[in-house]
Amino acid sequence: MASAILQRILDIAEEKGAISIKEANILIGELTFLDREQLAFALRVLSKETMAEKCKFKISVVKAKIKCSECGYRGKAIYDGPEYHTLNFAVPLNCPNCKGVKIKVTEGKEVLIRKIRLKVNSIGK
């Protein structure tokens, strides 16, 4: 996933005629299997000898939100299970409002490249 993120950023930067990438804002959902520290490390390693070598990768984590198709609840996924599930993140199992199980995750599963800051020679096509 880190390679895919970096490749996409490099492709866009090249398209815009960049000479280097200064900053990249990335959002990762807390329900993905990505860890912020590990992703940052991987991006630093992978970006060596590319125009993103000195890029500041700003990675934020998006909290999970759900939608319940039984009671219509939309909002935070609140988990009331064992403590080990709440230490890092939890799998939303039930609707916190009606305890129904027909829930859909609406946020928290994304890997979003939000914005990049480039140093350019001239604006590309």
Binding site: A4, G29, E110, L112, K115, L118, K119, V120
Partner: peptide, 19 residues
Amino acid sequence: LSVSEGEILDIEIEEDLLK
């Protein structure tokens, strides 16, 4: 349209790779 060398350009992408 033209930007001199070394100028900074911010680009909004909003692209979700898992999506």
